[in-house]
């Protein structure tokens, strides 16, 4: 980060005429505001988690029961949100193919911080039953900063609720900060992402 050229992103995947259309700034890290202010804000963040409605794998089917009368996620302040701009929690539902990962990265980077990632199922941890497949990734934490893993194949809605409550506790205790982690290790994450997403035809940091 010493000189200015290093601050700019190359955006090599884009054609030349599209380069000026996109932002080339790197993600920044953010310091907490003040002890008590941040504590109050974290309380608000923890009690109003908006999930991005993007089902990436079979685990998306486990999110639907959460909205029904039986599990009722609204009472914990969770709500689905149709656009990444407004969402704060990205629930990765199970196995992720390379094609999906590309869209996931794009959506994740469009989310406004502080943002959190919950990964469901053994597929996101070590590949699960698709560990030796040619098109599904093995470890999600090489591509995105994951806050909570919920194990199972697939985890039941009760497990999801437990995971969300754990995430809330972590936010309140200020133990998790995916946005800053992503910004700090940006080069490492980007190298990993680019290693498997072969046709990188989007800006390096799309926000």
């Amino acid at each position: 980060m010493e000189n200015k050229d290093k601050m700019k992103l190359a955006n090599d995947g884009l054609p030349e005429h599209e380069k000026p259309l996109f932002c080339d700034a790197r993600p920044q890290t953010y310091k907490p505001l003040g002890k008590y202010v941040e504590k109050f804000l974290n309380w608000a963040r923890a009690n109003s988690l908006w999930i991005l409605g993007y089902g990436t794998g079979c685990g998306a089917i486990e999110l639907r029961p959460l909205m029904t009368a039986r599990f009722d996620m609204f009472r914990w302040g969770l709500a689905p949100r149709p656009t990444p701009r407004q969402a704060g929690v990205f629930v990765i539902g199970g196995y992720m193919s390379v094609k999906t990962l590309k869209r996931v990265i794009r959506s994740y980077e469009q989310m406004q911080g502080p943002k959190f990632v919950i990964a469901l199922g053994s597929c996101t941890i070590n590949g699960g039953m698709y560990w030796d497949s040619y098109n599904t990734i093995n470890r999600l934490d090489h591509y995105l900063p994951v806050d909570i893993y919920i194990t199972g194949c697939m985890p039941r809605p009760e497990a999801l609720i437990a995971g969300f409550n754990k995430l809330k506790a972590m936010i309140k205790a200020q133990q998790t900060d995916g946005q800053n982690e992503y910004a700090r290790n940006f080069d490492w994450y980007k190298a990993n992402q680019k290693k498997i997403v072969k046709d990188w035809n989007m800006p390096d940091y799309n926000w």
Binding site: Y30, L41, A44, R45, N47, S48, A69, R70, D72, F74, R75, G77, A79, Q86, G88, Q112, G113, P114, Q179, W207
Partner: peptide, 27 residues
């Protein structure tokens, strides 16, 4: 929510949402 037979969000939820949205770091 009560008509659906569930508990529903707390009635001050809209205010928390507003605080949360204003506390977002980037825009």
């Amino acid at each position: 929510a009560r008509a659906h037979g569930r508990f529903g969000p707390p009635f001050w939820q809209p205010i928390i949402d507003i605080i949360k949205n204003n506390a977002r770091r980037t825009s």
